[in-house]
Every structure is written in C-alpha cells, then in structure tokens.
Design a protein around this nucleic acid. Sequence first.
DNA 1: CTGTTAGCGCATTCAC
DNA 2: GTGAATGCGCTAACAG
Lengths: 348, 348
Amino acid sequence: MTPVRPTMSDVARAAGVSAMTVSNVLTGRRPVSPATRARVEAAAAELGYELNLTARHLRAGRTDTVALVVPRLDHPYYGELAARLTGLLAPQGRHLAVEQTDAGPHGELAALTQARWQLYDGVLLSVVGLTPADLDSVRTSAPLVLLGEQRMPARHDHVRMDNVRGARIATAHLLAAGSRRVAVVGGADPDPDAGMMPARTAGWVAAHAAAGIEPDPALVVPAPRADLADGRDAVRRLVAADVPFDGVLAVTDTLATGVLAGLAEAGLRVPDDVQVVGFDDLAASGFTVPALTTVDPGHDAMAHAALRLLDRQAGPAGPGGAGDPGRTGEHVVAPVRLVVRGSTRPVA
Amino acid sequence: MTPVRPTMSDVARAAGVSAMTVSNVLTGRRPVSPATRARVEAAAAELGYELNLTARHLRAGRTDTVALVVPRLDHPYYGELAARLTGLLAPQGRHLAVEQTDAGPHGELAALTQARWQLYDGVLLSVVGLTPADLDSVRTSAPLVLLGEQRMPARHDHVRMDNVRGARIATAHLLAAGSRRVAVVGGADPDPDAGMMPARTAGWVAAHAAAGIEPDPALVVPAPRADLADGRDAVRRLVAADVPFDGVLAVTDTLATGVLAGLAEAGLRVPDDVQVVGFDDLAASGFTVPALTTVDPGHDAMAHAALRLLDRQAGPAGPGGAGDPGRTGEHVVAPVRLVVRGSTRPVA
DNA sequence: CTGTTAGCGCATTCAC
DNA sequence: GTGAATGCGCTAACAG
C-alpha cells in the first residue's frame, strides 16, 4: 500500500522478463517479439508504471526538451516566439520549456553560467543586455543558439532579424507617404551592431539619407524599457517640447501601441496628422485602432533557423559542439517584410 | 584535452579529499573545515566543475524548478502570469519553466499523463478543456495545482477567479452608465462551473436580473477561440444581423481589443455609441484606444495562492501529496476588482 | 530476440 | 570532521 512508484524492475518481474526488455519495449530501440511486448505493456499498465525521465537523462543524456530563455515572458514578442517554437518541436516529439531571466545583464549572465541548463537538450538564449565580452566568456554544456539583435561572438550560432533594412523600408514608407518629420521612438545612437534600438535607428538614418533629408536630432526619442508606457510618454514628451512631427517610427510594435495611445490622448489623428509604423508584427498589431503598419521580422524563418542550428550542434561534435573555443558559429539573418495597414496613408 | 565534464571525483582527487567532502562543501549539509573547504573550492574553480543537476535530481529528487503548463503561450494572459510567478520564485532561488499544451483536451490530457513533469518539483496546470472525469483519472507524481475556471475534482488543489462576480460588476457598471442592450462577446450557456465563458455569461445574466432587465438572447455572441479576430468578428456579426446594442461585455480583454477594432471599423464610437468592458486587466488594456475598462481578476492573489498550495503539497506527505486519492484539495477563489477606464462613460 | 553486467554522478547511510 | 560503501532508475555494451 506504499504509494512508491514502480520501476522497470517491478514491471519486469510482473511480466516475467528482464528490465532490459522492458526498456526495449518502451524505447523501441531494439526489436521485441509481439507476445513479450504485449505482456510487458500489460504489466506496465497494471502497475501504473511511468518512466523515470531523470534516470533516463542521467544515463542517456537526453530530455527531448529544449529551453527558450527570454528576458521577459510578459512581452508578447517572446510569447509568440515560444508558441511558434513549440509548434515546430511538437511534431517531432520534443518539447519547449521557456524560462525568464528578467531584462538586464545580470540575469542573462547568470542564466548562461548556470548549471541548470543541463536539464535541457539545448538552449535558445534571447540576448538583450550582454556585452560580447560577457558572451565570449561563456561555456555552456548544452548546445546553445543565441537570438538577439546585437553583435555576438563569432563562435556562437546566432539568429537575428535584418533590423537596419526593416527600419529603413518602414521609414521610407512614411517618407513616401508624405511624412517629413519622422520621430524615432526607442531611438538611440545609430549602430547596426549595438543592439535592437541602435540598429533600427540606423535604418531610420539610412532612409533619410536615401531621401536626401537631414533628420532632426530632436526627433530621436529614447524609450529605455520599450514598453507601452514608454511609447505613450514619448509622444507626451514630443508634444510638451513642441517638437513638430508628422510621422513615427516606433522601434517595436509595443512602443507603437503606446504611441497610438499617446497620440489619441493628444488629439492627434492617425494617419491624417501623424503616420505610425511599428516593428515586429505582433498578433495584436492587426487589431489596434487604427491597425498598425509594421515590419514582419521573419518570425518563421527565425524559428526554423534556430532549431536547425541547435540540431546541427547536437549532431557531429557531441555535447562539445558549442564548447569548442575554436569553433566558428553560423550567423543567420532573417528577411524582413513591410506589412501595410491603416496607421499609414496610401502611397501614391 | 578531452572536453569531458569534470565530476565530483575529479574535484576530490585534485583537492586530495573524498567525493563526499566535495558534496558537503557544495551542499553545506555537513560542516567542513575552512581549510578543506578552501582547497575544494579552489580545485572546483580550477577544473571548471559544474554540479550535474540530473544526477542530483535522481538521487535527491529536487530540481528547484516549477513547471507552468498553459494552453497557449502567445496569449498575453499566460505570459503575464508566467512573469508574475517567475518573480515570486526567483528570490527563493527557484525557477519557473513554462510549457505549452496547445488548446484542447487532447494536449492537456496528454500533458497530465506525461511522465515528463518529473523533471520538475511541481506543476501548475492551466486547465481549459478537460472534463472533471479526465481530471479525476489523473495521478501525477509531482505536486500539482490546477488553475482554471471550470469545476475541478475536489481532491486537487485549485485556484480560480471569481468569474461570476467579475462579470456581474462589469455588466452592472455598463448598465449604471446607461447601456440597455449589452452584448456578451464570448457568451455561452450560463453556468458558474462550466468554464470561463459560461461563468462570465452567468455574471452577465445576474447583473441583468439585479437590474430588472430581461437580456435579449440575440446579444449572446459566441467566440470559440477567444482571440482578437473573434472579437472583431462578433461586432461584424451583430452589425450584419442588425442587432442593436449599446454596450459590450467581452469575456476577455483580448476579445475586447478585437471588439474595439470591430467597432472602429463599423464607425461606432466608444464609449459614446457603445461602451465596452473586458476581463483580465492585461497590461495592454491600459493602452488601447480608448483605454479599456476591465476586471482585475486578482493576478497577485492567484499567483501567491498557487505557489502556497504547491509548497503545502511538497511539505507534509512527501511526493505522494496529490497522488492520494482520498485527499481533499484546497480551492482558492481570487477576489476581483473593476478597473474603470475610458471605454465606459462616467457613472453619475 | 533476450538476458547479464556495469555504471551515468551524486547523496544517503554507516563507519571512524 | 572525514571517508567508504551503496544505490537512485535506467540503458549501452556485450553476451547468448
């Protein structure tokens, strides 16, 4: 009457076979005669046997579970990424476990150095705040693929979006539709390799250069936390400072959604007074009022690439794949695409 | 030069002690002399030793990781819940791993019967589509707490919102502010125990009863997937069918956001022509245009309660806590609260 | 097709 | 305060 969980030996005894045969029935790694198989399955069902995955992991080094490590789970971007990855893994009988590090270098660095990723067959790490030096010092035991918009050490596999091009075509769209003073909300020192905000700001600069327009530095509005309130506050600040503007490139859809709220609050009409374009193509962005013109950052391509790179590491070199300091990683850039909706005016 | 990971024995050899002593240094479960401790720590650092968590788990039965299992990770409600739980666990040195089951009974039931939850110290399972019978048949090895709005078997611990009351006060607010024909988007057969939509519809019915109004069945609009498109389409359907309405109770904020999009599309003004109230108080709901009046379902209370129940199971009866068929679970109902914003008119 | 032996890396006895 | 033996539950490698 002890509620102790039965083990393979228990099942084996009940079925009159050895533990090895039970294992073979369960894993299918070696052929088993139908009769034996049936006896084992019956015994397992009878005893309510459940495989102990921890023991399997210790022995076989495999959990069939991939970790996705992100800064914040309450940001829809990561939720959508997680859902997409789960959808790709499920048909293969693999699982995704998502963990949050909280934004900032401390949490992310801790994430990397922690032994707990051994619980997983591989780790997809969304990097926001780490420096290349931080990343360079990293040794992980499990296969590792980095996701993020900053420059990463060459030895790690890395998947990112085409931020500069995305921001450039988005800004070009605003300019083509008549905006002349396009604010960049979430703007920063332009730099294609220094993270999401600098890279997208670089695209904003490039679009202006291509159009022969000198952008006003007053139109660069920082948004450190990149959340909804930051977007709304950016508009408040522009209005309060009397900086005229007739277009907004928000570097994320979340910021753009906040911008729409700020514009409504200020009594500015979208797209008539101010055109707005975002970046990320979140599910909700098709349902804002008005619906958001935005940049699809190649979600599917990123998810596919990330898993392909992970599997590539798991393959040849064994667990040492990412640990080899001399290794050269693969760096994938997903293609972007402009999605035109109601927050911008038709282009002639 | 083999990149094989060092084990405790390796560290022990390097430090000139036994593996047991290394373990004692790392766990602190037995006193170790400062000199020995220093030697062991130096050796561990030298070799780049990392504890093998899987082995510890097999031996000690503990991963310090709790699983949150949800239907969909791209639904902001679950992302926000996950972020909240992570925040509560982190200070205790514990972790949250989130996994998605995909909506529907099959995925959820599979989730429950799967042995893989052994990887975790406990499981918080968000239930949407399972019947009580499904749940009754469940034996999990790890501590289990159910989250969800339907009736659950008494033996499981369970945390839910006060759906009926939430929907009732939300609807009462619409009626008090002058609406007379309040549609319920995501409506279903009213029943306080049959899941989120029936329970919230029951609240809508109750508010009408209290106000002495007979609600028109034509105002009950189903929204099976409860996503943004369902919300927008509900408005399209009401308009196309010429059903007059001057208020909407959307049973989730996601639906409400879709409803706002649909109303904008139909040229109906919010709150002047139609007042809208949602349910869930998502982060984004403060930034829709106009901002959404909604029901705060007691997020914090739910998160706290869920973890408390999990820890309670882990404590006394050992791992058998939830497995005992004779056990009586605790059932917690979080308190709701109306959050008034711009999508409803001021109440006199 | 099936069984036997051995050991994954750690932590719990029990000894000293 | 430290060490030696033992086993958690499973599966690879070798029999047969």
